[in-house]
Simulated assay, not measured.
Amino acid sequence: MVDDELELLITVVVGAENERQAREACRELVNRVGGRIVEAGDCSDEEPGCWSVTISQPSSERVSEHVTATLARAVRRFVRELGPEFGTPQVACELPTAWTVLDEPAAVGRLVPGCERLLVEAWVGGNPLTGEFVVEGGEDPDESEQPTTEAPWDFEAPDVTHVLWLSVDVATDSPANAQWQARAVASRLARTAQVVECAESEPGLRRVDINLGPVVCDNAQVLQDVVRPLGREGWDMLWEGEAGAITWIAATAPANGIAALQLAVEPLPRTPTSAP
């Protein structure tokens, strides 16, 4: 049965010299929202001198039959409680999560000293930090549909053959918003993800390329297995030689949100063997 409780995750990107300093900067916000820090990470490879701190807080909202609306309402309610200066934010939704990015330096800086932006997410049906979810509809999904640690692909096997890439096209003018939305998708596919590039592909559309790491891959079925947790229909497959890609494009281009997804695999460079 689907749990009717929602979990809020507030990820703070803050300028800090180390993890202790980053956690200390978030202390007042943690106490204010009644949450707890569940994760902290160094993101200076993307933005020098930056750390991300993730705070977990149960939401007072409860899931109704309109799950998407409930998730969006939970995000907006939390933001309103932060203060009137944040107004009513635009919320994007991609089940099982809805999110918004607060990136006004003056406003977020009053919440957390040195803060650059906040990502506010509402999740339903599981813990986004472990990747364990149940689906909407009141029943557990078929075993083959669940993204568990016993996934049909293995990112850590010693005989990995390919690298898996995720490209996410996001309708937005904000690089930060594009990256957060792309990361939300990546978190449902792999345990690690590295943003390699975020660039405007056309006016109002940004493409985020993410390296999901090595994978054992010998045929196109692996790509279909990887995208299964996203639950979308209409994927187009292209496979040639040892490389391939699977692509989804929204039937109607969104004004804000995910417009297209592509997962691709390419062979790892082969190590040349020495002549005898």
Results as ranks from 00 to 15, higher is better:
38 V>T: 14
38 V>Q: 08
42 D>Y: 05
45 D>V: 10
47 E>F: 12
49 G>Q: 11
50 C>V: 13
55 I>A: 03
55 I>W: 13
57 Q>H: 10
58 P>I: 11
58 P>C: 10
58 P>T: 04
59 S>I: 00
59 S>Q: 03
60 S>W: 14
61 E>R: 09
65 E>Q: 15
66 H>N: 15
67 V>T: 11
67 V>Y: 11
67 V>A: 10
70 T>W: 15
71 L>R: 12
74 A>M: 11
76 R>C: 09
81 E>W: 01
81 E>A: 12
83 G>W: 10
83 G>T: 10
83 G>F: 08
90 Q>I: 12
91 V>Q: 04
93 C>E: 15
94 E>K: 04
94 E>I: 07
96 P>E: 01
97 T>I: 01
97 T>V: 11
99 W>K: 01
100 T>P: 08
101 V>S: 01
101 V>K: 00
102 L>R: 02
106 A>L: 14
108 V>C: 09
109 G>D: 02
112 V>I: 04
113 P>W: 00
114 G>I: 05
117 R>D: 10
119 L>S: 07
120 V>A: 00
120 V>I: 14
121 E>C: 01
121 E>K: 03
122 A>Y: 10
126 G>V: 13
127 N>G: 03
127 N>F: 01
130 T>F: 14
131 G>P: 06
134 V>E: 07
134 V>P: 10
136 E>D: 15
136 E>K: 07
137 G>L: 07
137 G>N: 04
138 G>C: 01
139 E>I: 09
140 D>Q: 13
140 D>S: 12
143 E>T: 13
143 E>G: 15
144 S>I: 05
